[in-house]
Design a protein around this nucleic acid. Sequence first.
DNA 1: TCAAAAACGATCAAAAACGATCAAAACCAA
DNA 2: TTGGTTTTGATCGTTTTTGATCGTTTTTGA
Lengths: 259, 259
Amino acid sequence: MILEVRADLAPERRERMRNLIRKAGVARVEDLKSDLQVSVATVRRDLEALEEDGRIRRVHGGAVSMESRLEEVVFDDKANLALKEKRLIAEEAFKLISTGDSIYLDGGSTVLEMARLLAGRTDLTVVTNSLRAAAELSESGPRVILTGGELRRLSQTMVGPLTRAILGQVRLDKAFMGTMGLSIDDGLTTTDPNEAFTKSLVQEHARQVILLADARKAGKVSFARVSDLESIDILISDKKFPDKTARALRKRGLKVRLA
Amino acid sequence: MILEVRADLAPERRERMRNLIRKAGVARVEDLKSDLQVSVATVRRDLEALEEDGRIRRVHGGAVSMESRLEEVVFDDKANLALKEKRLIAEEAFKLISTGDSIYLDGGSTVLEMARLLAGRTDLTVVTNSLRAAAELSESGPRVILTGGELRRLSQTMVGPLTRAILGQVRLDKAFMGTMGLSIDDGLTTTDPNEAFTKSLVQEHARQVILLADARKAGKVSFARVSDLESIDILISDKKFPDKTARALRKRGLKVRLA
DNA sequence: TCAAAAACGATCAAAAACGATCAAAACCAA
DNA sequence: TTGGTTTTGATCGTTTTTGATCGTTTTTGA
């Protein structure tokens, strides 16, 4: 049997490259060079293109997949956004809460920052799938209801089909969501399909959906699709959020607030 | 066979470093140097970067993790009475578990001791309403499913009618329960009615119910009734458990084991 | 309290990786 | 085939990363 060794078309080669990086989480330029049988210059150009799409993130020596577990750890907003800016987003979101509201808190560090602001609000009911948010509110404050479900260790959240059981039985006035990726073409995306399932369930269920996403999330695409952008009512981000994307979102009926 | 020793990408290496520190709580520069096969200079630079992200705090000689494990955030283990007895009871209960079992872990410190024994058992599925038990298993080990429900702050458990939603959807081979009171006349009792509700729900649902109760619980009666004694299959207690009560229980068909 | 030992930060040079540039190769439509 | 465009790989100066060195600070233990 002879393996046909034929030069790839560029898009085909990039797709292979993307898969290689996604599978390993990270990849070195040198490895990609020998795997794909091209020069380093071509590897770099392809990486540049893939980064443009938000599929990967280049680092010195290679690239990290934006569709893997590692990126969540390496590039989550905790690492990349100053605590101060994250707080601004959370405080802006906090203003939206009314007396007696029943609100949902998603996983993610920006939403977690918001949980800290709720410690004194005994008038609220907080529904959450995030153990960290629950921990934050475990001393005092609002009534806390946990969704239940399968524990996802990395994010310390409860996800998957079982979350439907309780979510179907509670009213949610406002849902404050986080996300890994926010793209005009691909909508909201996250790393884990079970997590995506739970997120979309909440968004269908809540009367008003508020997305908390720092500017770095704009244009990013992660692995599992959550929903399209239409299911969001309000986006809260920071000043660095790209104008072009903000305009496109407003055109689609979303309110966009930059804290 | 040759082990390929290839250099890590910086983000990859930092991620490994972060995990090493988080797992151990603290780490010395020298240890990290040999673990990661780099110079001390590089270790220091990486530590600097991780500190910048707020993931660790540098100290003279190394670094300590700022990513406290969940249980440390949520709970400080208070003075645990009769810890030794509880451990013995937990170990006795642990022996009852079979490969592949789906088990329920109730709240309470005795059952929590048991959770600690399950860290390595990836063959199991653990269903629990206890945030402390979940925290104990949040690093690794069995598949963890949380029941959801309203957070009861004092016991850090999820209780009330909402727990029915998920409990109705899972199979429980063995339920390991705790209790506040165990009385021949009044059966099992606990402090909170919502908690009592959830306990009784589990006991109806599980194929086998195993009660973990140290001798001090014998004869005690608390506020909210959980169930009568017939719903228990096996009682595990310690040597101090009163003979008279044990005989009465055996007469009613319970197996009694004193660890 | 003081001196030795350990750890530290700053600095520098070598190595690796990078981006820009340009010519050759491949491709495509006429 | 021809002329024009796109893609590729090599070259080269620049930037980033790394490990070693050295003087300074902190810790240790007598």
